[in-house]
């Protein structure tokens, strides 16, 4: 249970980090290391060189842009969890963060690391999928933005090319009046990987009618899946319990299941339908309580 030998470098800038990665195709980025270090201990990963980006200032911070909260890739999950900006403007992420690992891993683990790692059960990719976020990649001199739907390709596989570094993650903030969020997860024990997790966000008009609705389910499929076809049926409605249960069942039926040694396919669908409905109802009730925009 000891990692194989490797070289270690701690570049001072993103440019320098990208140059280190370009020079060695077997190099890997390390930030919090909360997934990579155990993978190395189990020799599931054997990078030749670790490029430590944890202390690059440009990769830290949480800022507001028009219509989005932008989080630096090396921002720690604990920092995001304690952020008043995220609590106020990005309540879905705030609701999901307590489920990410446990306090001792959130203290080191980063927002970008969770996205880069793309574990099918991970909560931050699920929130990013729900909100249709995007990921900014830097490769030597070139930067580009990838939409989340084009980013997660499979379990632990993303569209990040070899040699690229995630620099920031954009989480859209819904404009409009009454917005509510719901996050539900079931795991074998506290802080363990999610068997199924569901994230929902709902906007209501002054009358209590749904103007927008997003639901994504993770853990049961290779990548988190957003269920727009199912939730479109709720837009314009008053979100009755019966309508929500129907939509969650449709969403659960549409999941491209990934077989798992931890739970049967039937369990995954049943849990997805139940947690999806709970997340939608939680989001509806949360929105009902709010009178103003996310501020």
């Amino acid at each position: 249970m000891k990692a194989a030998p490797f070289d270690y470098v701690r570049p001072a800038s993103v440019e320098e980090a990208c140059a280190c990665l370009a020079a060695d195709p077997d190099a890997a980025i390390i930030a919090g290391g909360q997934t990579l270090v155990p993978m190395m201990a189990m020799r599931l990963a054997r990078p030749s060189r670790l490029v430590d980006i944890a202390r690059i200032d440009a990769l830290h911070g949480i800022r507001q842009e028009s219509g989005a909260i932008v989080i630096g890739a090396a921002t720690r999950q604990a920092t995001a969890g304690a952020s008043a900006t995220i609590a106020a403007r990005l309540p879905l992420l705030a609701a999901a963060l307590p489920y990410v690992g446990h306090a001792a891993t959130r203290a080191r683990g980063t927002v970008g690391g969770s996205v880069a790692n793309a574990d099918p059960a991970a909560e931050i990719p699920l929130v990013l999928t729900t909100l249709r976020g995007s990921i900014v990649l830097r490769e030597l001199a070139a930067a580009r933005t990838v939409a989340v739907d084009d980013f997660f390709l499979g379990p632990m596989v993303t569209a990040t090319p070899t040699g690229a570094c995630i620099t920031e993650i954009h989480f859209p903030v819904w404009q409009g009046a009454r917005i509510g969020v719901g996050f539900q997860e079931i795991s074998a024990r506290r802080s363990d990987f999610a068997l199924v997790a569901a994230a929902a966000q709902i906007a209501l008009d002054a009358d209590g009618r749904c103007t927008a609705c997003a639901l994504a389910i993770g853990g049961a499929s290779a990548v988190p899946q957003r269920h727009d076809a199912a939730t479109d049926a709720l837009v314009g409605s008053r979100l009755s319990d019966d309508a929500i249960i129907e939509v969650a069942r449709a969403a659960a039926g549409a999941i491209d299941l990934m077989s798992s040694p931890h739970a049967s396919d039937g369990y995954h669908r049943r849990a997805a339908a139940t947690l999806g409905a709970r997340a939608l109802m939680q989001a509806r009730d949360d929105a009902m309580r709010r009178s103003g925009a996310l501020s």
Binding site: Y8, G33, V37, L50, A54, A104, R108
Partner: peptide, 20 residues
């Protein structure tokens, strides 16, 4: 578990060089 800058963290999930 140790405290790193006052917060609990796993000492097995960080290489000593990272903790410089």
């Amino acid at each position: 578990t140790v405290l790193i800058d006052g917060e609990p963290a796993r000492a097995c999930l960080i290489f000593a060089v990272q903790a410089d």
